[in-house]
Nucleic acid binder design. Structure first.
Lengths: 203, 203
DNA sequence: AGAATTTTAGACAGGAGCGTCCAAGACTAG
DNA sequence: CTAGTCTTGGACGCTCCTGTCTAAAATTCT
């Protein structure tokens, strides 16, 4: 069934025939109809399955806040690295790309992503930044906005280094590419400097 | 011909019938064949035309560096606002979305965007940041990387405030939405604080 | 007005994909 | 071994779209 996702990502929903996915799987076309009855149902099932898996991966990446207040730069570097690793995970990258390409034609897909994946991860992130700020490690007056900046920087860095986001599916970059690591550290550095206490207030 | 772009964006290339675009234009289906001969050719012509127009819009947005060294925060706020205005321009938004949805199936589209639009704008941005740094207004050791951060912040802000980028096409947000303006100023503020001289070195 | 060019509507063949049906084969269970 | 279930490959009807063709209508040019 990962094969179906792969095909939907590579060719899009409209251009992917059930014969294609049958050829890519050990079952035949009729078996697919027996199980799902419908191309649309198959598609939604594929989305649903990988959505759950992706949520699990993202949860693991973002739910590691230590009990003791960490050094913000060290901790945020680790966090950024875990988020990046999730973004570059083949399944996540494929799912994001698929939601991106089919989302405009299927608004409920975007909504599913937002409700089931983005929202919980988002609030976890906001909570962590709020804790860092509350502990005095960072000067943040609006954790939600700061989370937006953090995600924009991490996401943008990965985006800019992977050919507009499509690269990750076809040529997954090495996680330990030193250029990627340096870019990520630089982005986190900017974030930490910009929210360091002792600066002008973070407006 | 703007109608053709609209349709391709809304329905995607595969699901857009030539009858659809004929119905949306004052000409008939056969006239389209007479002029373009082919659906693929029509598509590429539409892309090409709007690509040129978008480049022009983006050039105007980014080529306004004053002769006298400006205050970085004030200037970058104006620059960010102009870039955002371009991103939210219906034509640009539609084109970006179209390249996003059809790019994975048409790698040359992504390449066209990068070569003809992104590359020149990118180098203009890098040059401006380098000038700000050279004048001592900011402490930037790698203008290209800083440009990446700036674009990531501006782009990410717009992205996060417009429903994952699809919102802009169907419900263009008001340019003078105070929330958008505040978010943009906040992002630029982070950038300027992070690259302010007198801080730790910008690594 | 008259001639030439373009546009139009409709019809048409060709091809492709979805969803269904069916009969033969494989696999499982008792 | 036998009965029942599931899978398979093939064929089929149906719909839709592309690209072509043709004769009539409209437009432009002289």
């Amino acid at each position: 069934m990962a094969a179906a996702l792969e095909l939907f990502v590579r060719q899009g929903y409209a251009s992917t025939t059930l014969e294609d996915v049958a050829a890519a799987t050990p079952v035949s076309r009729q078996t697919i109809y027996n199980h799902f009855g419908d191309k649309e149902t198959l598609f939604l099932s594929v989305i649903d399955e990988h959505l759950s898996a992706t949520l699990e991966t993202l949860r693991e990446a973002t739910a590691h806040f230590p009990s003791e207040l960490p050094d913000p730069e060290v901790y945020l570097n680790e966090l950024a690295r875990r988020i990046m690793a999730t973004f570059l995970h083949p399944r996540t990258a494929a799912l994001r790309l698929l939601l991106q390409t089919e989302g405009p034609r299927n608004p409920q897909l975007t909504q599913l992503w937002r409700q089931r994946v983005a929202a919980p991860v988002w609030s976890e992130l906001i909570g962590q930044l709020a804790r860092l700020a509350h502990g005095g490690a960072l000067l943040i007056d609006d954790p939600a906005r700061a989370a937006g900046h953090f995600v924009a920087l991490v996401n943008g860095t990965v985006w800019e280094m992977t050919e507009l986001g499509t690269f990750a599916v076809y040529h997954p970059p090495e996680l330990d590419d030193p250029a990627l690591d340096a870019a990520l550290r630089s982005a986190v550095g900017l974030f930490v400097r910009g929210y360091a206490p002792g600066d002008r207030p973070a407006g």
